[in-house]
Design a protein around this nucleic acid. Structure first.
Length: 645
RNA sequence: GCCGUUGUAGCUCAGUGGUAGAGCACUUCCUUGGUAAGGAAGAGGUCGUGAGUUCAAUUCUCAUCAACGGCUCCA
């Protein structure tokens, strides 16, 4: 007998060769109907795969991530079967599960899949699923696998096989479809009750843009129609908080073909948000000992040759304009300008750390297909600053920057983010990264140490560093799940030397400072895009473009409304009056939809008592209070930058 | 940049080989109404842009621009 241990610590004995499905059945029939896969000694296995030794077994049902992945992976095979039956002769690359569903990359040859075909494929898949075809695992010697795919003329699977070791190769077959696959899979297709093929996209083979483009079909599937409906419902909800939709509805920003792709026109409402953010940044930076500077948006080519940016980024800068025999570039980064300010006056160690900040406007010629609302644009305003410091000061300065992030995140209630320690790839030294292997090692260790000392959870990622040094990026996710770097904190051991930046040490030697590039609030564009989604458009009062709307019951009360408005305006509250000839219900509805935080209803009662009836957006009627009291309440809320809950 | 989809009124969208329609928004009038849509009338579009096919193109074809979904990229 073999001993099976369960996550709760229980142990049971089974005959060797028993399967996880047998184990589930021995516990309860209900469980056996629900279980999709099993974790056996930490590895996800097919339920039907025999277990021959003692093992830790965890039965995985839909709620578990690994079970979902297995389920979607199996659905990808089912989709491939359907595609093969509707489009015979196509070739398959890989079909993995992803965050929300699965995809399969396909070489369609001269065939073509349309949106209509997706509906046909869904029908076919449902039909195949109903056959309850088992996913059958088969171990295959490498030579046999090779000859199988050679005979099929499938160069893609042959390519996959190249990197697989003999004895470690398995095929899975369900119905008429056989695929090279390491598994695992759900027991049979009958579990797949609801399928939605979501979109068709191109994807480079092996993710390399030099390679052929394959057709990728995305889909998602569920064990019941109800779950699919809920998922679709959730997508609808997510769309409502998409910053592109909210940006339009709330009059935040616009774009125009005559201006150009990726160039944001900030409307009055958006500009209010920008100015509030800048106010916050300026206060915070002043308190932290930064100086403000202002620098031009262009510079000569020679500066970007000095900085070393040009060889790396020429393609993603706007092409230069030539004037009097000189090439000028629109800047894509602020750092060189700032370095020139550092260099303008001789520095001593007493001047360090030298911190200079600017909401710097930069222009990046991002690939057209990359542009995305406010999140990825071609003209951006960076919450930029550069800190020039000694090696001894570095840790404290770097840590102070991290603390600044966290301070900001607290104000905005940002909880869902990942701190990413971005490191270089040693094999790309001299290409993507400056060729200073020792300095890379040293600074990466320094940055890691700061994270550890500050007790900040983080993930390490290779090949994500800047060309001049390692960095910490704060990754956030848009409502539709796309990942973006919101904030960044970077070490630079390279540009100080390129620009011959120096300071005099205490013993009068010349030393090159370390530089920290940092942008805790990222760019206005991305940060505001993020905030709109984060708050679903319901900005806290201090950020709201329109903080108060006064709603007179009828125009008899306009004079009183004007009095109230005057009081609020003198307290610097952004307020206006809905003076339309509409009923109060209509005024409330429209103001609610514009997500104005406070509505003040004024009518006969309020006028006689010197009060206003306060209504909070999304919360309804809060009752009447004296005007002066309201002014105090809202002023405090604004000054404290309260999130309002 | 690549693959695919889309482009009609300020917004959301319907529609057609014979030069266009709805709802909301807007303007005017009636109504002066107490916590999420009061009523009526009116105005508004050379159907993204350019070319081609056709007696005739918003509709078909091609090109181009832009948006969207991915891929690649992201100082």
């Amino acid at each position: 007998m073999i001993k099976i241990s369960f996550p709760d610590g229980a142990q049971r004995e089974y005959a060797p060769g028993t399967t996880a499905l047998d184990i589930a059945k021995s516990i309860s029939e209900g469980l056996a109907r629900k279980v999709l896969a099993a974790s056996v000694n930490g590895q996800v296995w097919d339920l039907t795969r025999p277990i021959y030794g003692d093992a830790q077994v965890k039965l995985l049902t839909w709620d578990q991530k690994d079970a979902k992945s297995t389920f979607w992976h199996s659905t990808a095979h089912l989709m491939a079967e359907a595609i093969e039956s509707l489009f015979p002769g196509v070739k398959f690359w890989v079909g993995p599960p992803v965050e929300n569903g699965f995809y399969y990359d396909i070489d369609l040859g001269d065939k073509h899949i349309s949106e209509d075909d997706l509906r046909k494929l869904e029908v076919k898949m449902a039909e195949l699923a109903k056959q309850n075809n088992a996913y059958v695992r088969k171990e295959v010697p490498k030579a046999e696998a090779i000859s199988y795919f050679k005979e099929k003329g499938d160069e893609y699977k042959l390519d996959l096989l190249q990197n697989l070791e003999d004895g470690n190769i398995t095929f899975y077959t369900q119905g008429a479809f056989t695929d090279l696959c390491r598994g695992p899979h759900i027991p049979h297709t009958g579990f797949i009750k609801a399928i939605k093929l979501t979109n068709i996209a191109g994807a480079y083979w092996k993710g390399d843009e030099k390679n052929k483009m394959l057709t990728r079909v995305y889909g998602v599937s569920f064990p019941s129609q109800k779950e699919l409906d809920e998922y679709l419902q959730m997508l609808e909800e997510a769309k409502k908080r998409d910053h592109r939709k909210l940006g339009k509805e709330l009059g935040i920003y616009t774009m125009d073909d005559d201006v150009g792709q990726g160039l944001i026109l900030w409307m009055p409402n958006g500009t209010v948000i920008i100015e509030e953010l800048e106010k916050l940044a300026k206060e915070t930076e002043e308190e932290a000992g930064y100086h403000r500077v202002v620098t031009p948006h262009i510079a000569k080519e020679s500066m970007y040759l000095t900085s070393g940016h040009l060889p790396y980024y020429a393609d993603s800068m706007y092409p230069p304009m030539e004037l009097e025999g000189e090439k000028y570039y629109l800047r894509a980064m602020n750092c060189p300008h700032h370095h020139k300010i550092f260099a303008a006056e001789p520095k001593s160690y007493r001047d360090l750390p030298y911190r200079i900040a600017e909401y710097g406007t930069v222009y990046r010629y991002e690939q057209s297909g990359e542009l995305f609302g406010l999140m990825r644009v071609r003209c951006l305003h960076m919450n930029d600053a550069h800190i020039y410091c000694t090696r001894e000061q570095f840790e404290q300065e770097f840590r102070a920057v991290n603390e600044m992030y966290l301070k900001y995140f607290k104000i905005f209630g940002v909880g869902k983010y990942v701190m990413r320690l971005s490191l270089h790839s040693p094999d790309k030294l001299g290409k993507k990264y400056v060729n200073e292997p020792e300095l890379w090692k040293e600074t990466e260790a320094m940055v890691r140490q700061v994270l550890i000392d500050s007790n900040i959870p983080y993930v390490e990622v290779m090949d994500e560093a800047a060309f001049y040094g390692p960095k910490i990026d704060v990754q956030i996710y848009s409502v539709i799940g796309r990942e973006f770097t919101l904030a960044t904190n970077q070490v630079d051991f390279s540009q100080g030397r390129s620009f011959k930046l120096q300071y005099a040490t205490a013993d009068n030697q010349s030393e090159t400072p370390l530089i920290i590039h940092r942008a805790p609030l990222g760019t206005h564009e991305r940060f505001i895009g993020f905030l709109l989604e984060h708050y679903a458009g319901k900005l806290p009062v201090w950020l709201a473009p329109q903080q108060v709307k006064i709603l007179p019951i009828s125009d008899k009360f306009m004079d009183y409304a004007l009095d109230v408005q005057k009081k609020l305006r003198s307290a610097r509250v952004r307020v206006s009056i809905d003076d339309r000839n509409e009923k109060i219900g209509k005024k409330i509805r429209d103001t609610e939809l514009l997500k104005v935080p406070y509505m003040l209803v004024v009518g006969e009662k309020e006028m006689n008592e010197g009060k206003i009836a306060v209504r909070r957006q999304g919360k309804g009627d809060l009752g009447a209070i004296p005007v002066d009291e309201f002014v105090q309440v809202i002023s405090r809320e604004i000054t404290e930058r309260s999130s309002g809950d």
